[in-house]
Write a protein that binds this DNA or RNA. Structure first.
Lengths: 186, 186
DNA sequence: ACCACTGAAGCAAATATTTTGCGTTAAGAT
DNA sequence: ATCTTAACGCAAAATATTTGCTTCAGTGGT
C-alpha cells in the first residue's frame, strides 16, 4: 500500500484555475450574465469544457467560486482608534462594494451556488473574521465590545438583506447608522 | 390599429401552470433537487418541455416561482392583543417554516432565480405586508409602533441571514429575542 | 537528478438539454 | 357567433453536458 498522494495545488492546476477565473471575470464585464455558458468560459480560458465540468460541476458553482474570491478581504480592517469608527468604516466599505449591481450579483451567486453550505460558509468566515478582528482590537484597548453575533444580527444582516432583496440604492450613512443603533448613543 | 390583446390567465394556461407547479413540488419530495431537469418536470406535468421553457425561461426561474407560492402568507397574522406578542408569534412562525432544509432551499431559490428583481421583490412584498398589518393594528390600539424598516432591519433581516448563510439549527426563542431587542425591555 | 505514481487535463463520442419554426388549439374581445 | 392571437404541441436543429480513454505533468521517494 503506497504513500497517499496529495491534492495538486500548484503548477498546471493552478494555472487552469487562474485562467478560468480570469475568463469568467472578463466575460462578465462584456456580456450579460444570462448568456454566460461553460463552453464559452472554457474557450476564453483556453481549456476544454470537460475540465471545467469536472472541477466545478456546473456554471453556478463556478460563479460562486469566483464570487467568493471577490469577497475575500484584501487586508485587515482599518484602525481608526475606536470601536465605533472601526465598525462604521468597515460597514460603509462593505456597502460600497456590495450595493453596486456587480456586488449584488456576487452576493446572489454565493447564495445560489451552494448545494452544500460551502460557499455561504466561506463567505461568513470572511466577514466574521474581519468583524472579530475589529472586536478583539477594541477589547485590547479596554473598550466594551458587543458579541460577534450581535454585530452579525444588527449590522451585517440588515445590509445583506437590502443587497439581496431590495434593489433601491442605499441611503449614504446607512452602515454607520446601523452601528449607531447597535452601540447606542455616543 | 386593433385592440390590445390581454394576457391569458384562465383556462388551459391556468391548468398548465398548476400542473407544472404540482410536478415540481412532487418531484422535490422524492428526488434530490440537483437532478431536477426541465424535461423531467415537463414529463411529470404532462406538458412539452418547450412550453416550460417559453413560460419560465429556465429551471431556476421556475423554481423561484414555485418557491414564491410557498412563501405566500395563508392568512392575516394572528392577533394576540399586543404588538410584542404579535410580532414574536409572527417571527417564530416564520422561522419554523424557513429554518427547515426545505425552507432554506425555498429562500435560496427565491434569491437565485431572479434575473431582474421580481422574485425577491414579491418576497419582500409578502413579508412587508404581514408586518405592516401587525403594525397598523397595534397603532389602532394606541400602541407606540416602530417603523417598518426597523422591523425589517432588526427582526426579519437577522432571521433571513441565518437561514441563508448559517446551516446550524436555530436556538428556540430566537425570533422572540430579536423582537425583545427591537422593542426594548418590557 | 531521475523515476514511479497518479491526479488532473485533453479529446471525442455518446447523451441530454435547450432553442426555434411552424401548425393547431382555445381564451378573450367585439 | 365570430375573429384575433396568446399559448401549446411537435419535431428538427443547435447547444450543452457527460463519460471513457489517453496523455501530460506535479509530487514524493530514491
Amino acid at each position: 500500500m503506497g504513500t497517499r498522494q496529495a491534492v495538486r495545488t500548484g503548477g498546471r492546476s493552478a494555472r487552469v484555475q487562474q485562467a478560468v477565473h480570469d475568463a469568467v471575470r472578463h466575460l462578465l464585464t462584456e456580456r450579460d450574465r444570462a448568456d454566460l455558458t461553460v463552453p464559452l468560459v472554457a474557450a476564453r480560458a483556453g481549456v476544454t469544457p470537460s475540465t471545467v465540468y469536472r472541477r466545478w460541476g456546473d456554471l453556478q458553482e463556478l460563479l460562486a467560486d469566483v464570487a467568493l474570491q471577490h469577497m475575500r478581504p484584501d487586508g485587515p480592517p482599518a484602525d481608526l482608534g475606536n470601536l465605533r469608527d472601526d465598525l462604521a468604516a468597515w460597514a460603509e466599505e462593505w456597502l460600497e462594494e456590495m450595493s453596486s449591481p456587480t456586488g449584488r450579483a456576487v452576493a446572489r451567486d454565493v447564495v445560489a451556488g451552494d448545494g452544500d453550505g460551502r460557499s455561504t460558509g466561506q463567505c461568513c468566515a470572511y466577514t466574521s473574521g474581519q468583524i472579530e478582528a475589529i472586536l478583539t482590537r477594541a477589547a485590547g484597548r479596554g473598550e466594551d465590545v458587543p458579541a460577534l453575533d450581535a454585530v452579525l444580527d444588527h449590522v451585517l444582516a440588515p445590509m445583506m438583506y437590502r443587497v439581496l432583496f431590495i434593489s433601491d440604492s442605499l441611503a449614504p450613512g446607512y452602515g454607520r447608522a446601523l452601528v449607531g443603533t447597535l452601540l447606542g448613543p455616543r
